[in-house]
Design a protein around this nucleic acid. Sequence first.
DNA 1: GGAATTAAGTGCGAAATGGTACAAAAAAGT
DNA 2: ACTTTTTTGTACCATTTCGCACTTAATTCC
Lengths: 219, 219
Amino acid sequence: MVQKSKRPPSAAKIEAPVAPKRRGRPRAYEPEVALGKALDLFRRDGFAATSLDDLSAATGMNRPSLYGAFGDKRELYIKSYQRYRDDARAAMVDIFRADAPLRERLERIYRIALDIYLSGESGPRGCFTVMTAASEAVSDPGIRTMVVEGLTELDKAFGICFRHAKERGELPEGADPAALAHLASATIHTIAIRARARVPRGELEAIVKGALDVLCAAK
Amino acid sequence: MVQKSKRPPSAAKIEAPVAPKRRGRPRAYEPEVALGKALDLFRRDGFAATSLDDLSAATGMNRPSLYGAFGDKRELYIKSYQRYRDDARAAMVDIFRADAPLRERLERIYRIALDIYLSGESGPRGCFTVMTAASEAVSDPGIRTMVVEGLTELDKAFGICFRHAKERGELPEGADPAALAHLASATIHTIAIRARARVPRGELEAIVKGALDVLCAAK
DNA sequence: GGAATTAAGTGCGAAATGGTACAAAAAAGT
DNA sequence: ACTTTTTTGTACCATTTCGCACTTAATTCC
């Protein structure tokens, strides 16, 4: 692992995965985990109510380092949101692609969603997209674009699910995959909101079950 | 704190509806309209991003007057939220009570909802409950209680709708009114979120139509 | 007219906030 | 050893924020 010799001039190696041998003083933090901490704060308190002092304390980085690493507060917020979406997508993409019956796929999606929304030491953290949409999206065009992307991405993923299920004959002829997808997204949104209001998981699961009964039966 | 401190010994009369003949200097503002202005600000920017200076400017009241009339910022926020809920309820209660076919009732409810969410000079204002749930509900028990109340109130209103429709034979025997109600609420929530992201009304109406096709399907 | 009462208006102040300048520190290159 | 490069850490600044004292103004009651 310790390929410490100087870079062979001819060898066009891929970026070394470890020990990049940077030039100056080494960082005292890991950007990934610091961003994760920032994400936690933003998710709990929102943009305006999260101060740079809070972020500094949570990440262990002092403000200038924070600024140097991620840019100003808004940039850090956006990077946090991107990170959130990457994580959420990574957690769901396999299930969306899996070749399983409709109901089973949806059940797994909602289980993941509830895990995401309900986790958190100081209360359920909800959905970053919903939080951001609710507050920042009106006034910030850049953030608004990201929110719309996030919403439509989910719509599309569900849409593929339902279209696929219909082709397989799991849904009646008259079923409208797009409409069902929007209802599936709506169910995601409603449980995200309720989770934030500390509605217990059991109730949320009941709401999901009722929704699946309607969406999968759809007759 | 149960008993009112000092009560006028002789005057036990009901509050006069007009010309209350108050004692000191008259107010230079009308509490109702001032609260409305505060509500507008809170809806646009959320709790943390709305400063007392903003509120003071919008209401025309200086800070001490604001404080005297409504209490501190959090109290003003809560009163604004109550006002919002009163307004929204007033706008919908007649429709919920009306004796009309299911689909028509729902269509009217969603039309009102879209009016509420999309109005606003500086962009769509969204739903106060959704905004509040997303940000303040986790950390503030009092606000959380109000949010939960608001959510369940809507669930119940929709629930009555669907139960009534089922009794009238507008829905099939197997229909689950509670599940349908949750989906109807979820549709409210999803359009509130999308409205905040400036999704145009046409798209929101299409989502509503698709949802109604499923919820009223009753095939 | 004067006391009492209620609200408006000015302005203060302590704390917090976002952002940055600047020097010290830790590593690599020469 | 000395320079270069990159980051850290301290300290600071201008502004904003919330809340409140205190004075002034307007009105009713006696």
